[in-house]
Amino acid sequence: MFKKVVFIVVVSGLLLTVFYWKEIRKKTQTITAQKRVETFMSGSLQEGDIIFQTSGSNQSKAIQLATKSRYSHMGILYKQGEQWGVYEAVQPVKLTALKEWIQRGEQGHYVIKRLKNAKRILTPETLSKMKMAGTKYKGKDYDIYFEWSDEKIYCSELVWKIYKEGAGIELGKLEKLRDFDLSSTIVRQKLKERYGETLPLNEEVISPAAIFDSKQLETIGSD
């Protein structure tokens, strides 16, 4: 009996040690990532840059599989005063502090891309137009059906329309829902959950992957 009690105590101690080690490691990684972000933000970002991540939403995996991309969420970087934020379509459309946005993604990983010749093209006047174009979407609900309308809106649609309406630039190729890989069980389950048995296969869609792969963009940073 004594040996059994000792064994249980030892195992419990080891489990607690592993748990606390993981928590300390997680906090250390978060602090290190924050420092790298702050260093990067200090002089490398420009308004209008586009940031990508793998979100923790329950639809993220389905988006990754359907688009064959690691990235399932995105937004536009804007600066308010001395603080950087990500204008994004979540629930609802809003500006989120950059550090908060990064921490929300999978393992704090992100990629930032920029329009080629951005300094020449994204003038203060153009950026002002882009911000005005995005204002009409502020507070709108997230579009879980990925419809091409302005009533509700999803992340890549928000970025695409802001660039199109504010700068006259189309980032990424519009596709039909039928163009994506809908074969996996995860994707089919999510589609059935959203649409039932009738899929809007001809609905126009712009995916994070399409914008990420746009030849009009270049990568300027990641972590």
Rank of each mutant, 00 (worst) to 15 (best):
K161L: 06
V6H: 11
F52S: 01
S183K: 13
L65H: 01
F40D: 08
I186F: 12
E151Q: 14
V9G: 05
G134R: 02
V10P: 01
W21G: 15
S207C: 08
W84G: 00
A210V: 01
L122Y: 01
S214Q: 07
Q34K: 15
S60Y: 10
F146V: 07
S55W: 03
K140Q: 05
M130D: 05
A167F: 05
L127E: 05
G172W: 10
I24C: 08
G81Q: 15
L16D: 03
D141F: 08
D181G: 09
R178W: 08
K192Y: 10
I186Q: 00
T126P: 00
E197Y: 01
I121W: 02
K131C: 09
T185Y: 12
E147M: 05
Q80T: 09
L45M: 15
S214C: 04
S72L: 09
I206F: 02
L65G: 02
S183R: 08
S128E: 11
G85Y: 10
T39N: 14
Q59I: 09
N58D: 13
S60C: 11
E151D: 15
Q64F: 07
F7T: 13
G85H: 07
S184F: 05
E125K: 10
E175N: 04
L77T: 04
G56L: 11
H73E: 07
G48E: 03
I24N: 13
K3W: 07
M132T: 05
I186R: 00
G56P: 03
K140G: 03
Q59W: 08
I220F: 10
L95P: 00
I153W: 07
L122Q: 01
R70L: 14
Q29K: 15
M1R: 06
V37F: 02
A62L: 05
G168T: 07
D213P: 00
I220P: 03
E218F: 09
S184I: 02
P208Y: 15
Q189A: 03
L65T: 02
M1Q: 04
E38N: 03
I206C: 01
H73P: 00
S128V: 04
L127W: 08
